[in-house]
């Protein structure tokens, strides 16, 4: 039984169509023109309990809009969505008790007070009795490596500590489904890693389902066995990370060592030169032409040694979004 189920989920927004300048501002004031944009188009997927799914896509792809439909913050224009068996948009209290939303760029903790005060408020809102709340806070604080920090005003915490405290506040009611929008935004490498470790531990311990978006590929590779790729509102891919790179990155990295010194220009006709200098070079070549290119290189140069690797997933996704070759690649 899926815990999140979306069927042909669609969201259209009406946006004002206004050109810049005073004249157009006046024209717009008198005669408003709108156009419809489809932020999310017929997206369907289903997520089983306990899964951690990474939600990928460039800015404006429709990730946040989808998350907002799943949490019930916005109403879908078409399609169906069910989370923990309920319709999110009704925002019934027993639904809200089972989900949480963490947004890396927004915070719910009271700025001037220790996080502990905000935690007590949340405990009261979610009807958690004080003894149980204290127990949960201790447990989560232990997992997050938070201690004294909970007693200091939030404004005095570092970004990493604050994010951990936000997570604690968002998880106090033990939600079954976690929606995380850029939970590691702006954190340094260490803080990112500890947030990641925590999420993995939380997922294991409570069998919680996690859907997360992130710009840091490291988050995705470390946490998500499954990824969904969304581009211009359409779901382009849903599957494992390996399958993603096989499908969207038909490239391999070819590292070569030559007997004689070699110049960059000499190699450019064989593939995309990543680096070249002295006796070594590395090339990006299409997967299906790998052996052919390798043969040609060995005919043309004195190749001492070579290795073939998959380019890192960060590069794959980065290239995908940069070149906009997503549609082409998906077809």
């Amino acid at each position: 039984m899926a815990v999140i189920e979306a069927k042909n989920l669609t969201k259209r927004f009406r946006v004002a169509d206004k050109k810049p300048g005073l004249w157009h501002t006046l024209k717009h004031f008198v005669n408003r023109r709108y156009r419809l944009i489809e932020a999310v188009r017929e997206v369907s997927f289903s997520i089983e309990p306990g899964e951690i799914v990474g939600f990928l896509g460039p800015n404006g792809a429709g990730k946040t809009t989808t998350l907002k439909m799943l949490t019930g913050l916005i109403h879908p224009s078409a399609g169906r969505v069910a989370v923990v068996g309920q319709t999110p948009f009704q925002r019934r209290h027993d639904f809200l008790h089972q989900i949480t939303l963490v947004m890396g760029q927004k915070q719910q903790l009271i700025w001037d007070l220790p996080a502990m005060d905000s935690l007590k408020i949340n405990a009261s809102i979610y009807r958690i009795d004080p003894v149980e709340a204290t127990r949960r806070i201790d447990e989560l604080a232990g997992m997050l490596d938070l201690g004294e920090e909970l007693q200091q005003p939030v404004r005095k915490l570092s970004l990493g500590q604050r994010m951990k405290a936000e997570l604690l506040a968002a998880l106090l009611h033990r939600p079954r489904v976690l929606f995380l929008d850029e939970p590691t935004l702006g954190l340094d490498i260490n803080a990112q890693a500890s947030v990641r470790d925590f999420l993995r531990a939380y997922n294991r311990q409570y069998k919680a389902t996690i859907l997360l978006t992130s710009h840091y590929m490291a988050d995705i590779t470390a946490l998500c066995p499954r990824v969904m790729l969304i581009h211009e509102g359409k779901l382009m891919f849903d599957g494992s990370l390996d399958a993603l790179s096989a499908r969207f990155a038909p490239y391999r990295e070819l590292n070569l060592e030559f007997r004689h010194e070699i110049a960059r220009e000499q190699l450019e006709s064989y593939g995309e030169v990543e680096s070249a200098g002295g006796h070594a070079a590395s090339l990006i070549v299409p997967r299906d032409r790998l052996t052919h290119i390798l043969d040609e290189l060995r005919n043309g140069f004195d190749v001492v040694d070579f290795t073939v690797t998959d380019p890192p997933i960060e590069q794959v996704i980065g290239r995908l979004f940069r070149t906009g070759s997503l549609e082409a690649a998906a077809l």
Partner: peptide, 8 residues
């Protein structure tokens, strides 16, 4: 958003 997602 945080306020709308609280069960109160």
């Amino acid at each position: 958003d945080f306020i709308l997602l609280k069960p109160i």
